[in-house]
């Protein structure tokens, strides 16, 4: 458990990277996780099919907000196709901890809201429900 709330996760939660607003976003979206009330909004500046800059804004649990902060560094410089391809493996690799399906939903809010910003439908394709 202490591993769960390891230093770098709490650091990203308390000091989120790329937080705030862009002057000229070209795409944006908002998402919620109705289960626990996590809220997350994203703004993207896309030029030449590449993410030039990104901002996240939200409030929610440490996992959802830390994941957004970590993913924000990942998406910069990526092509739209590469951002679309981000999934649970990428988020879990950033977080560095295993997550139960319920908490995975928190972690995946960031990639889901990115997909919506890119015009895709929100989906839960990365959620696999397994019995414990």
């Amino acid at each position: 458990m202490d591993d769960f709330y390891r230093e770098n996760i709490l650091d990203h939660y308390k000091n989120p990277r790329n937080s705030g607003h862009l002057d000229h976003p070209t795409a944006s979206a908002e998402g919620v996780n109705p289960l626990c009330g996590d809220e997350l909004a994203v703004e993207l500046e896309i030029e030449d099919d590449t993410v030039q800059d990104v901002r996240f804004n939200g409030r929610g649990c440490a996992i959802s907000q830390a994941a957004a902060s970590m993913i924000s560094d990942v998406v910069k410089g990526k092509t739209v196709a590469e951002v679309r391809a981000l999934g649970s493996e990428d988020v879990l690799e950033e977080l560095g901890i295993p997550l139960s399906p319920i908490r995975l939903k928190c972690a995946l809010l960031s990639v889901n809201v990115l997909r919506v910003a890119l015009g895709d439908a929100s989906d839960d394709r990365d959620l696999e429900w397994k019995s414990a």
Partner: peptide
């Protein structure tokens, strides 16, 4: 966040709802 409170309480065997 309430969810994090509940997660840490779970590690102590304490079951509470968060949301």
């Amino acid at each position: 966040h309430a969810h994090d409170v509940a997660q840490i309480l779970d590690a102590e065997g304490v079951c509470v709802r968060a949301g």
